[in-house]
Design a protein around this nucleic acid. Structure first.
Length: 127
DNA sequence: CGCTTGACCGGAA
DNA sequence: ATTCCGGCCAAGC
């Protein structure tokens, strides 16, 4: 299988973690979605970024600190990618109230819409 | 030093 | 719906 890594892996991972920490309980985001919310690192062509960034997000999840809700990141099909620990991920999501139908969640219902989206708690307006 | 192995995704067949 | 393919790196053994 092909693979490439971001130029500054650590810096990129930290951006991913920062974003994932904002995903609220009871909602999910996809690897590709998280990747698309971040800018391509310096020197990475957009095309290259689009091709590999979802996997970079996956790698970031594999190495994330304990305070990152890694379980809320699933694949673009609404399923939990096969790996050791997948069962626990599903359990954690179900504990947050997410329902699975035939091993997949309905993204139209549970997908996070990004920072500042309508379903997000928000700080009071500055005006 | 030389393998092996990765939390992905969209389009084509 | 399902399988296959390209994308072409770096850490760990």
């Amino acid at each position: 299988m092909n693979y490439i890594s971001p130029p500054d892996q650590q810096a990129y991972y930290e951006q991913v973690w920062h974003l994932v920490r904002q995903v609220p309980p009871g909602t999910v985001a996809t690897y590709g979605q998280i990747a698309d919310m971040l800018p391509p690192p310096p020197g990475v062509e957009l095309q290259t970024y689009k091709a590999y960034s979802p996997r970079w997000v996956g790698s970031a999840m594999a190495a994330c600190p304990d305070d990152v809700p890694w379980q809320r990141i699933i694949n673009s099909q609404g399923k939990i990618s096969q790996r050791p620990g997948a069962q626990k991920q599903r359990q954690l999501l179900e504990e947050e109230g997410i329902l699975f139908a035939k091993d997949k969640v309905n993204l139209k219902v549970y997908q996070w819409h990004g920072p500042g989206a309508a379903d997000e708690p928000r700080q009071a307006s500055l005006f």
